[in-house]
């Protein structure tokens, strides 16, 4: 029995960390964002350029990103022009597909839904999952305000802000504290996603609709025109994809089984010494 007691301190308590609302909205969002990304790239491919301003310039140049194909002495090549810098991106951007049947398109078939060029279907898929995404966000905000998830895990308190330098050091050395509430950097990134990126990608998406612009003309003033809104929409997508990559890396680094279990069953193995009411402010 004495031996058993020796091994116990290496394991912390199992705590109920994620409510049913957090878990269900998490997975619905995962599905939504997957379809939104791939149908969004389909829509982007209908005109694979991004501009700054009120209009897309073809008699003047206000493009910051263009994907296109050019004819060279070695045959057609795919090109990407980003902030005036041109890159050869044959095989991925501008031109992709097999050598005998090349496709001249922005993003390759593997990254769009459907794989072939079909703007109408891309829009059908995009808007369906956009509604599901927004509905899920509404439920998440309501539930998270009521059950304290936002207060406990998303908004940074003075203690969190003071703890940021230490948390950066801990992340750099892959030492994670598994507590009841989220750590400072975790809170910071989720705050950015929920309170900045999600609202921004929804509002810039609405700004692209001429109908919405007549209902809410302020959208055009806030974002500086439909073309700028489209560019911001794309930029936020890039940030969300980056968030996804870091999210997956952190789940793998912090213990994928434990992290996945907490997002499926709600139960989480906390660090030794964690009290079950840690982080609760009543």
């Amino acid at each position: 029995m004495a031996d058993a007691v020796e091994t116990v301190p290496t394991k912390g308590p199992l705590i109920y960390r994620q409510s049913i609302f957090t878990r269900v909205t998490h997975w619905v969002w995962a599905i939504c964002l997957f379809f939104l990304l791939l149908s969004g790239l389909q829509i982007f491919n209908a005109h694979p350029s991004l501009y700054i301003g009120q209009q897309s310039g073809f008699e003047f140049d206000n493009a910051i990103l263009e994907l296109y194909a050019v004819n060279t002495d070695d045959g057609p090549r795919g090109r990407t022009r980003l902030f005036g810098q041109e890159f050869d991106t044959t095989g991925v951007l501008g031109m992709s597909g097999s050598a005998d049947r090349p496709a001249f398109r922005g993003f390759p078939a593997a990254l769009t839904i459907p794989s072939f060029q079909d703007l109408a279907t891309g829009r059908v898929v995009h808007f369906f999952f956009a509604w599901l995404f927004v509905l899920t966000m509404f439920i998440w905000f309501l539930a998270s305000f009521i059950n304290g998830h936002i207060r406990r895990d998303i908004v940074l308190g003075p203690k969190d802000i003071k703890g940021i330098p230490k948390d950066i050091k801990d992340h750099a050395t892959l030492k994670f504290h598994h507590g009841r509430s989220y750590g400072p950097l975790q809170k910071l990134s989720y705050f950015g996603v929920f309170f900045i990126l999600f609202p921004l990608i929804i509002l810039t998406g609405l700004t692209m609709s001429p109908g919405m612009d007549s209902a809410w003309p302020w959208l055009l003033d806030v974002f500086g025109g439909r073309q700028t809104a489209r560019t911001i929409h794309f930029g936020v997508m890039v940030l969300l994809v980056s968030f996804f990559i870091i999210h997956i890396i952190m789940v793998l680094a912090a213990g994928p089984i434990n992290e996945l279990r907490s997002m499926i069953t709600g139960w989480y193995r906390a660090s030794p010494g964690t009290t079950t009411n840690e982080g609760e402010q009543k």
Partner: peptide, 19 residues
């Protein structure tokens, strides 16, 4: 996914597409 998995959504009389 990106490849051809969801190409059926492109056919106009598909039931899932209708939903």
């Amino acid at each position: 996914a990106g490849c051809e998995q969801f190409d059926f959504l492109g056919s106009r009389d598909n039931e899932v597409r209708n939903v």
